[in-house]
Amino acid sequence: MMNRTAIGAIFLTAALASPIQAQGLFKQRAKRRLAGAPALLVRAIRAQPTLRYTGTYTTEFRQGSNTVRHQEFITRDGIWYRIEFPNDSQFAGQVIVENKDVRLHYHPVTNEIMQQPPRHGEAWEKVANLANNKKFVLTVAPGEMIAGLHTEQLEVSDFDGNIVQRLFIEPESGVILKRLLFDKVGTQIGFLEFNQINLSPVIDPSMFQIRRKNAKIVTPLIQLERIAKRRGFVVRYLPPLTGYSLEGSSYRNFAGVDGLVETYVNGQDRLWLYVLKAPLNPERLRANAGKNLHVHSIDLTGESIVLMGTLDEKTLTRFSSMLVAGTSPLRH
């Protein structure tokens, strides 16, 4: 049974989350990186903390031979988000609300609320990073009509002219209405496109709350513990003193090997922790990872652990020594 303390905690967290504070932090970070960036991108970045709209967008991602495509309804007021799904969606009934401090994801089938760290800051950071990434060239080009609005296009390409991303931005508001991602041979591998948008919505603040009595709060650690138990893994995770928070976990099968994937966030970038029920070749992994992705692996009896991210290998090694492990249920 969801107790009153839990409900109180959710409301308290929501009340404390001040959009003004978030704007300040974001502005400081973005200012350093926007010098010399196209005005269109600067407009889009600066608008992020204060954007208000309701709308519907379609998102698609190609994963091997599969294409994952679904529609989401979004209500946004600055850093406050609410995301829902159409009735014919496989995610129908789920509701996500997010503010500066927390992301709550309600699952009607299990009557649970997944509690996660917020991730909107990460999305802004990534767009802002485009401005000062020396590997890419940013070009402004005419856009197209999207969701009834005129847009301008920001092309992100490498120095050989290969397009990596296309962002379609409504120039007045700075809202990104369409985003296309391409692989190295120019094939579109993912997109997000608004089908409908209202830039002057009336938004009730209660939209950003989830009030569901008797719903169970599931933290990322509880989720990890469940998957580990179901799949026969030892529960291992990075403690918060690393500066990274566990966002979520999932089971995967890697070339016939059982694997547990944990993702960690810190508001700017991510870390991945792979737990595998087989030994692997660290040299081959490192060689195939390339220059920008760093890996550190540990071989334990019966399990291999791989930490992966953009952090330097020394830090990954230090983090791996801080791994918390336990076979019995964790106390939170």
Binding site: T59, E60, F61, Q63, G64, V68, E72, I74, R76, Y81, I83, I96, E98, R119, H120, E122, A123, K126, R179, L181, I189, G190, F191, L192, R252, F254, A255, V257, G259, V261, T263, R270, W272, Y274, L276, A278, L280, N281, R284, L285, N288, A289, L293, V306, M308
Partner: peptide, 22 residues
């Protein structure tokens, strides 16, 4: 196995880029 992990990581990064707050 190694390439399967790296492919998963690559897909995950791209998925996050596309999905944003979703």
């Amino acid at each position: 196995l190694e390439s399967a992990i790296l492919t998963d990581h690559h897909n995950s990064v791209l998925f996050n880029e596309v999905s944003s707050a979703g």
